[in-house]
Nucleic acid binder design. Sequence first.
RNA 1: GCCCGGGUGGCGGAAUUGGCAGACGCGCUAGACUCAGAAUCUAGUGGCCGCAAGGCCGUGCUGGUUCGAUUCCAGUCCCGGGCACCA
Length: 878
Amino acid sequence: MAYDPATIEPHWQAYWLEHQSFRAEIDPSRPKYYVLDMFPYPSGDGLHVGHPVGFTATDILARYKRMRGFNVLHPMGWDAFGLPAEQYAIKTGTHPHITTRRNIDNFRRQIRSLGFSYDWSREIDTTDPGYVKWTQWIFCRLYERGLAYQAEIPVNWCPALGTVLANEEVIDGRSEVGGYPVERVPLKQWMLRITDYAERLLTDLDDLDWPEPVKKMQREWIGRSEGARIRFAVDHHPDTEFEVFTTRPDTLFGATYLVLAPEHPLVDQITAPDQRAAAQAYILATRSKSERARLSETTSKTGVATGASARNPATGESIPIWIADYVLASYGTGAIMAVPGHDQRDFEFAKTFDLPIKEVVSGGNLEVEAHTGDGRAVHSGFLDGLPSKEAVQQMNAWLEAESVGDACVSYKLRDWLFSRQRYWGEPFPVLHHADGTTRIAADEDLPITLPELQDFRPSGDFSPPLARVTDWLEVPDPTGGPPLIRDANTMPQWAGSCWYFLRFTDPENASAPWSEAAEQYWMPVDLYVGGAEHAVLHLLYARFWHKVFYDIGLVHTKEPFQKLVNQGMILGHSYRYWDDNLSDDPHAAPTRFALSQVDLSGETATDRASGNEVREQWITPGDVFRDDDGTPKHPEDHRLVLDEVLEKMSKSRGNVISPDQIIENFGADSMRLYEMFIGPLEKAAPWSADGIKGVRRFLERVWRLLIVESPSGEESLRELSDAPSEPESRLLARTVAGVTDDIEAMRFNTAISKLMILVRDAARFESLARHSAETLTLLLAPFAPHLAEELWSRLGHADSLTQEAWPEAQRELLEEERQKIAVQVNGKRRGEIEVATGASNAEVEAAALALDAVAKHLGGRAVQKVIVVPGRIVNIVG
RNA sequence: GCCCGGGUGGCGGAAUUGGCAGACGCGCUAGACUCAGAAUCUAGUGGCCGCAAGGCCGUGCUGGUUCGAUUCCAGUCCCGGGCACCA
């Protein structure tokens, strides 16, 4: 029988499970390597082809490192709390517990069918009470340290989802999940004081081996800026003052008015009676405006004067106080000093409302625009003549001396909104007393498990579903007082993923989240692979918790993830056209439009001819009709050319490829190999049904190289010679060295191409040495482990190759004795010479000049210069 | 608008430090095997001119630096991603 993954692969998967081949135990005598995938949310759709890209990359590293003698920790688990299971429960009444269990079983089956070398004894499920217990325990530690607190704040309330969302989960005024509208509503919520760690989260990025763009995104998210707080006393309101934050204290002399955010607490107090109506109207208008609307008018400035004023401490002048929505309540102090001469936003506002513009930094043209760059201070009293940087220093010193301000640092990062009004999450281990005070649950009472529920619907009135479960909610007071009330909120999905990488080091521990010994040995994660979509959220939250653990003494490293790699997405082809069936009437006979007939420049697509709105429609790739030259056409209308789009796979486009189907048709090894061969790991690449045939053919060639079939159909190992021939040895050495380097650098696509070359050339040799066959098998093992194990076994080995030593290249064979060197005349290739490796430049030059082609292309001109690059090229200039 | 990536054959991609552009794979063409097909194997495959030898052009575009540029510099166009009143 020929190469048959359908029999080989299940056999070896069962073998690995049975022999616990990848079980990791602490072993101080060996170096450790912790390689981690971002654990998946087990969705109802099952694995998509994008998951195995990262999983295969980490598996190659895990298998390779084992063969290099490392003690490898390579675990897998489930980030199983989350909205989709709950949404499904609302729709069908199926308990999230059941859905989650079912989805996990399916994910586990799919992941196992790809032959990844996980230590399944360490499998984690964040919804497991044994895990929830420690998530809650960690919350208690945060609470004790004052890092968890409750606050009444305007939050992002999403009516459709029935929950509040963190700022990070809201994109352009819509929920990241589902794209529903979000409103700002003041609600009492749990917050985590991540801002206390802003500075460390920023500085510790420097030493991480992470992609620069990810570090940059985190830096920008934290948004550190240096400046000063300056106090302004409000005129005619004794003892009333407020602070502004500015990064340009040197421009204080140029502050000609002040602006409060509409939500600023002082607005109500200081607004003059005759401005009160206008201010109220403005504040209401701001509040009802959606984020989207506010964003779209970033160029035009609106605002209302309060009628109040305050004294500029530098000039002693009274300057007016305004309200404007271009000042954000949530950043800095929610108030600014406006310096229209040197801030473009203030400049635009001043122009709109005819406020004075004063030059205090030279070098710009204030007739045209604000001068935001540096220069020398002018019209600024004691600062005059100083360059901006020095002026900042002087002003800060003056502010402190005069007790009107301080130099300080401000961050864009806000505290983390940590509660959700949902059912399917970790309950807060918090009890509320009747008097409004709260206390955390005792450690021995953990976990606080979720009550069984029939009705999962959000209450619709900001209260969580758990608030309806009276007998769960009320806890008798041990001191005999009125019953204590449990907190009815649940934690966001991020909670479980903030520490799972630590639990993997010691997953069964019942007395602690993890043991010191396990943490000391396994942490930090040496390689963390996952999608770029987690660049800020998950990675920032997990770093934050890890730093708290560090402060408590629970971990010994400041950072959890030493090296991070983002895998690229697998894209699918999808096919679209447009029609005028806007209401989705199934009985309509709509007019269809091709891309060329449609205008996409506006907010909605329109038919160019009529200007009427048309709607995008998608054809499943399998249904697309192809005409003779391959042009994609509508299946029912062969005149309609479809627009081919390459994008992220999604259900709505019908372009999703299931790994199950690929494994069935080609095998897991082919699937793994293809996803690695398609291009660099970090780069997005389109799925190609033809491409996978190529790697499958390669695996068949490997099989036929070692396994021969008698005319009667019996298979056996081919006859192997004792010693490899010299060209064979050289080829082998080159491949071992190349593949090893490529794996270390995670260039899996080129590693596979080198294996293809080895197999192609080895097939042409008359004989093949046992050593060559075994080396090839070992090199192949991280990529196509099932086939490699099968061949290893047929090569006569009783044990699995997972712990075999990785082949070493014979260095002395890497250098050829003779080498070919290209010869150029005036930079153009005109010939080639062959010289002994290590030949002197003079020898190489002489050989090159002796070529007929060189003389011909010199055309009689004298040689002016000869450049010899040893081993590569000779360039003759003449 | 600002900040990052990235533009290389029909397609995915390769090219270590500025040194033979197009490795490897897909697809395609021809041949071998076959009654035939599939599979497999062999050869070819950037474009143009040429019977050939060979020549010219060629890494988004326009310039520059260099003996030599996919690689460095300046400008520009296109695609993808991130940020977007953060004082």
